[in-house]
């Protein structure tokens, strides 16, 4: 036991992320074949396979591992959360929403294709996410994931992405942007908890569910995910004012130029950084009861989210 901290410190996070991203990318590639009609599948693949760190699917796989499950048990869930993330970006970028031409350093989906295709590609990814997560044939044949676990995971994902989750965040964001008056910290936290944190929460929680976690473990992992979700957004806001478009691969300074409330605007840069530190500390404390070696990916993912440069 005395060797544990040393083992955790020696954890090769970069190697872990790369290895998992390769596995996730290959599962995503296989999940969206170029079927008829080709153009809509091209649009889905264009946005889905555009790269990115695959933070959500990796969180999902890592949570499954912490719960004692195997990677094959969580891969359908990992694929599903990345599909949901991608569809929300596609719809978010539309002219009627954030009207963004650039995403991950390339033209956004409606710019590379057209608006109608982008709406349909997003809808199709949303459907495919649930189709993949609920499909009994996507899971190991040994019955290590039961229909009940699958149904519970679907319910969790649906709640997290619907009108009380992800969409609620987007609505609140849409309404706040139109107002021209700054929102307060409570409203800002509502937006971020729903727009960003809720999908990280779903990723971790459904990974834990299919991995066989107990209810108590699921709730602790849920709290961990909420902390790093909010952390993600605070850091995003900080990066928007401190980095260039080239460095970020998306339009920088956009929040500053618009009426959009951000943590740096609300708290100042220094206080925003302190808030980020608090969230990081809280996320770690939620992991304290788990196996010290198995939590290494989740600990490092939190650090990564806190200290990333883009």
């Amino acid at each position: 036991p005395s060797a544990e901290p040393a083992v955790a410190a020696a954890f090769d996070f970069k190697g872990y992320m790369l290895e998992k991203a390769v596995a996730v990318n290959s599962a995503l590639d296989a999940a969206v074949p170029l079927a008829h009609p080709k153009r809509i599948h091209e649009a889905m693949r264009y946005s889905l396979l555009a790269g990115g760190k695959r933070v959500r699917p990796v969180l999902c796989l890592a949570a499954c591992d912490v719960a004692g499950g195997r990677e094959s048990q969580a891969m359908p869930a990992a694929v599903a959360v990345e599909m949901i993330h991608t569809m929300s970006l596609i719809h978010d970028d539309l002219p009627c929403m954030d009207d963004d031409d650039l995403r991950r350093g390339r033209p956004s989906c409606h710019r590379a294709f057209d608006e109608a295709t982008a709406v349909l590609a997003g809808d199709a990814l949303l459907a495919l996410a649930f189709g993949h997560l609920s499909d009994l044939t996507c899971y190991p044949a040994d019955g290590s994931v039961s229909p009940d676990q699958i149904v519970r995971a679907v319910g969790e994902l649906a709640r997290c992405v619907g009108a009380e989750g992800l969409v609620a965040g987007q609505v609140a964001d849409l309404e706040a942007t139109g107002l021209g008056t700054p929102v307060n910290q409570e409203q800002l936290e509502f937006i971020h908890l729903h727009k960003t944190a809720v999908l990280l929460e779903a990723s971790v929680v459904i990974g834990a569910i299919v991995g066989g976690a107990s209810d108590d473990q699921i709730e602790r992992l849920r709290k961990y995910a909420r902390c790093i979700g909010l952390l993600f957004q605070v850091v995003d806001d900080i990066l928007d004012v401190t980095k260039s478009s080239e460095e970020l691969g998306k339009t920088a300074g956009k929040d500053l130029a618009s009426d959009k409330t951000t943590y740096p605007k609300l708290l100042g840069l220094e206080k925003s950084r302190e808030f980020a530190e608090e969230l990081l500390k809280e996320s770690r404390s939620q992991l304290s009861g788990f196996d010290a070696i198995k939590i290494a990916p989740l600990v490092h993912l939190a650090d990564y989210i806190a200290y990333r440069q883009k």
Partner: peptide, 25 residues
């Protein structure tokens, strides 16, 4: 027990990229 996941899969397929979304496209 397996009926509910199968129903979910069916609905997802029906509205998806080879179903209704394909039809509209």
């Amino acid at each position: 027990p397996s009926a509910v996941p199968r129903v979910l899969t069916e609905i997802a397929r029906a509205v998806g990229s080879t179903g209704m979304a394909a039809g509209q496209f």
